[in-house]
Design a protein around this nucleic acid. Structure first.
Length: 878
RNA sequence: GGGCGGUUAGCUCAGCGGGAGAGCGUUCGCCUUACACGCGAAGGGUCGGGGGUUCGAAUCCCUCACCGCCCACCA
């Protein structure tokens, strides 16, 4: 073993071990996080984390959000921005509560056994125990957030922000309490917003029921919920429906009861659907609620919060029955009573609780609502004017449509875990809310109301009623003088999956307008969803999720980040494929070994300008590096991580490693200072360019090259156009083609790669090739001679030169000839195509000059190739 | 019922107006002193179908088919 090899081996292990290296750097970045200085003169660049559930575990969705954000943050930081990646977690009300309740259940208890206070303590305990897990996992991913600024939605400051939000909106009249039809989840015993309800197509039955008319005859209605007939207050038909002319104003009897209800006319009734007559149940159906309101009808409820039939309107035999049980019993009774006149299969869009999977029950309930109309309109303007942009652009419309069609948001939840609503009620149900200028004082401490017995609302806010403030509550708001708020708000980019636009993005836009008068971010960068190998969305319930930590363990976090970066193209959904991660792992190893090769070199790099190098390979590489730098930088600036990834991969593997390093080996061995300077420079640049996507291996290698500062703190490379060298690129590419042709000859001749072959060059390009003799010979492992060799030879034809390899005995000439004929066919086809095009007057006239010129060049090349191949074949036969 | 995305090599995907690309897999060689997580060579596609625009279409327009997603109060 020679000295250089042993020295290199001492510096860098011969095989890259991601686990060891990554663990070390992850710990370093966790302990000494990248901080952002609010007083820095540098321009701010801010991204807030989409806060993960505090008790959750890292999944691929998080890996996407955070990798993309971290790539942008590291990139901008290196570009000289004061970059803040604001981290934190969400208390995730219902999700966390359900989780802790499940744990309690395993111990044979329920939250009611503990009582509210003890239960909430229990959740805090749970949070203390598991709340750090996801943070550690993110740190393991190499996320360079400002961990010293970790925030939680239920921190004191953020809770204050939520309280201020409510109080302010209340006094503006935008938040109000009202009885409305809500989506009730009987399993978790809370109301849900529209968005927390998943619609699922389910087969069901539609029943036709005959309601007896008071003057004889019957009116037949259609329903999928016969069990709700007891809450009927009317039957509605369309005002212009001639079938029911004369019936409006008369009364019908609800089957199985003695109640008579009026027939009313309402435009909401669809004439073509069902029988054209609709039973009206205002307390258990949103449409019916509205129709009932228009006609001033009562709203009797007959389904309770456990989804059981209840109340005096329900005949005794059905009282206490679960809704579904009740349905079949009611249908039986209707049939027996002769009121069931028809039934048929029908698909319904059943609402299911996103959390519990339980069918939600629409019922009447007194809840808090938030009228977002005014702020949404302002937010919409920003979107329409382009002040807030979406990447990819098509989501602009999704967001705008959403902002346009918002309904009032039900913000109260019957949970214990969350921000408790700061509203109090007296015995008469009057509402007391802290004053606008002093939102933190409880009304019970307010001297004005000291004589009253005020009870605080037991409910808490919807989780999103705190995460909507996230882009500014984490930066110190409501303290508008907080230096972080001043420096880093509004944030620059919001990165998240497109499935969260309605939940979070639009609500942050609204909150930003409402409380800061500014949009909370300038750009919304949306990524696709992660699908499994079958194209199914990954989800906990399906159990088809990939555990990113497992992936990290097997391939390394850099490899995972590489895969995420590469998959981030155009907001496209990604079918997760470990082969891409493998590609990333291999790439990290490739980089490692390239650095190892470089670190093994001894000698003194040329001290002057890189432009001084007389070596064709150096000039070629430096020129290519400028192009790669430009492309990678532009791609990152356009938030196109996929393109940046591909450009970097291509340059490093196919150009730097496959060609340049091979070409440079000989000069380096000879102590060429120009080659050494070039290779050092290129490697350093590559480490920087790759650092955002693969922070671990690049940090380790940068350090190994002897830098005291971290690569993360180094300056982002800028392309130096004076190093662009189209001439060198073209010349080196000719050498590359010749080398490939020579290697092909070796392969055709079945000669061992270890053997040096003798290659003869003939043709106008031969002398050019000879001028790069050394390069060609070392890359092709050949001896280059000019001219034509004696006797039979294999021929590799290039447009301007042909390479001949004198025939050794063992070659299968017939097979070789076959392949050669194939090449000739291709070249002829090429020639024909070009010829056709060039003889087309309209092409020559209509196409841009350079395109026509290019075509002429192609034509000439093809013609020359055909000629060489024909001659070579003739030689072979002779 | 509206809206959006997808259909490119066996698989997973880039490319989105000037002669089809990558990784994996396949075939043939190689432990060539950075790397077998590697090196060299090769094979493989009428870019879902049909129409149109254009000198020129995988790329733009229309249309059809299939796959997927989002929104929607026909009970």
């Amino acid at each position: 073993m020679d000295r250089t090899a042993s020295r290199g081996a001492g510096e860098l292990a011969s095989r890259y071990d991601p686990a060891e290296v990554e663990g070390r750097w992850a710990a370093r970045w966790a302990e000494q996080p990248f901080t952002a200085d609010p007083y820095s003169p540098k321009q701010a660049f801010t991204i807030v984390i989409p806060p993960p559930n505090v008790t959750g575990a890292l999944h691929l969705g998080h890996a996407f959000d955070n990798t993309i954000i971290d790539v942008l943050i590291r990139f901008k930081r290196m570009q000289g921005f004061e970059a803040l990646f604001q981290p934190g977690t969400d208390h995730a009300g219902i999700a966390t509560q359900v989780q802790v309740e499940r744990e309690l259940k395993r111990q044979g208890a329920s939250r009611y056994d503990l009582g509210r206070e003890a239960f909430v303590d229990r959740v805090w305990e749970w949070k203390r125990e598991y709340g750090g897990v996801i943070i550690e996992q993110l740190q393991r991913l190499g996320i360079s957030a400002s961990w010293d600024r970790l925030r939680f939605t239920m921190d004191e400051g953020l809770s204050e922000a939520v309280r201020r939000q409510f109080v302010s909106l209340f006094h503006q009249g935008k938040v109000y309490r009202a009885e409305r039809i809500v989506n009730w989840d009987p399993a978790s015993q809370t109301v849900l917003s529209e968005m927390e309800v998943d619609r699922e197509e389910r087969p069901a039955e539609m029943y036709e029921l005959a309601y007896e008319l008071e003057d004889g005859g019957a009116l037949t209605i259609a329903t999928v919920r016969p069990e709700t007939i007891f809450a009927d207050v009317a039957v509605a038909v369309h005002p212009e429906d001639q079938r029911f002319e004369g019936l409006v104003g008369r009364r019908v009897r609800i089957p199985l009861t003695d109640r008579w209800v009026p027939v009313i006319a309402d435009e909401a009734v669809e004439r073509d659907f069902g029988t054209g007559a609709l039973k009206i149940t205002p307390a258990h159906d949103p449409t019916d609620f509205e129709i009932g309101a228009r006609h001033d009808l009562p709203r009797p409820s007959i389904i309770d919060k456990d989804a059981k039939l209840t109340g005096e309107y329900v005949p005794e035999g059905f009282r206490g029955l679960d809704r579904f049980e009740a349905r079949s019993r009611v249908v039986g009774a209707l049939e027996a009573a002769g009121a069931l006149t028809g039934r048929r299969e029908h698909t319904v869009a059943l609402g299911l609780s996103q959390r519990t999977g339980e069918p939600v029950e629409p019922l009447l309930s007194l809840q808090w609502f938030y009228d977002t109309d005014e702020a949404a309109a302002k937010a919409l303007k920003r979107v329409e004017s382009g002040e807030v942009g979406f990447v990819p652009e098509r989501y602009t419309k999704v967001d705008a449509d959403w902002l346009r069609n918002l309904r009032h948001w039900c913000i109260s939840r019957q949970l214990w875990w969350g921000h408790r609503i700061p509203a109090w009620y007296d015995a008469d149900g009057n509402v007391y809310v802290p004053p606008a200028d002093d939102p933190l004082t409880d009304p019970t401490d307010d001297p004005r109301w000291s004589g009253l017995d005020l009870q605080r609302d037991p409910d808490v806010f919807d989780t999103w009623f705190s995460s909507n403030l996230w882009p500014f509550s984490t930066l110190g708001w409501p303290d508008e003088d907080d230096p972080y708020f001043r420096k880093f708000y509004p944030t620059d980019v919001l990165v998240t999956g497109y499935d969260i636009i309605s939940f979070w993005v639009s609500r942050m836009q609204i909150a930003g307008e409402e409380f800061t008068g500014r949009p909370p971010f300038r750009t919304v960068l949306l990524h696709g969803l992660v699908l499994d190998a079958e194209g199914q969305k990954m989800s906990k319930s399906k159990g088809n999720g990939v555990d990113p930590l497992d992936t990290i363990e097997r391939y390394g976090a850099d490899a995972l980040r590489f895969a995420v970066s590469r998959a981030s193209t155009g907001g496209q959904d990604v079918r997760w494929d470990d082969r891409i991660v493998e590609m990333g792992r291999n790439f990290a190893t490739k980089l490692w070994n390239a650095a190892r090769l470089v670190s093994m070199q001894e000698g003194t790099p040329h001290a002057g300008s890189l432009k001084d190098s007389p070596n064709l390979a150096d000039r070629w590489l430096l020129s290519r590096l400028q192009r790669a730098t430009t492309e990678i930088t532009a791609s990152l600036e356009a938030y196109d991580l996929g393109a940046a990834n591909r450009a970097a991969y291509e340059f490093v593997w196919s150009e730097l490693c496959d060609w340049y390093l091979e070409a440079a080996k000989a000069p380096l061995r000879a102590g060429d200072g120009h080659a050494l300077a070039t290779v050092n420079h290129a490697l350093e640049a590559v480490l920087k360019l790759l650092h955002p996507m693969m922070p671990f291996v690049t940090s380790e290698l940068y350090q190994a090259l002897g830098h005291a500062e971290q690569v993360a703190e180094s300056e982002w490379p800028t392309a130096d156009d004076s190093l662009l060298d189209p001439e060198a690129e073209a010349a080196f590419e000719r050498v590359m083609s010749a080398v490939t042709a020579a290697r092909n000859l070796r392969s055709e001749a079945e000669l061992s790669p270890s053997r040096t072959i003798e290659v003869w060059a003939h043709g106008p390009g031969a002398s050019g090739l000879s001028s790069a003799k050394g390069l060609f010979e070392s890359l092709a492992r050949a001896t280059l001679r000019e001219g034509l060799p004696e006797g039979a030879a294999l021929v590799g034809a290039l447009p301007d030169v042909e390479l001949r390899l004198p025939l050794a005995g063992q070659v299968d000439v017939a097979a070789y000839g076959e392949r050669q004929r194939g090449r000739l066919e291709k070249a002829r086809a090429e020639m024909e195509r070009s010829g056709k095009k060039l003889s087309n007057e309209r092409f020559v006239q209509g196409a841009p000059a350079e395109v026509v010129e290019e075509e002429r060049r192609r034509m000439a090349e093809a013609a020359s190739l055909v000629e060489r191949l024909e001659r070579a074949l003739a030689d072979l036969v002779s």
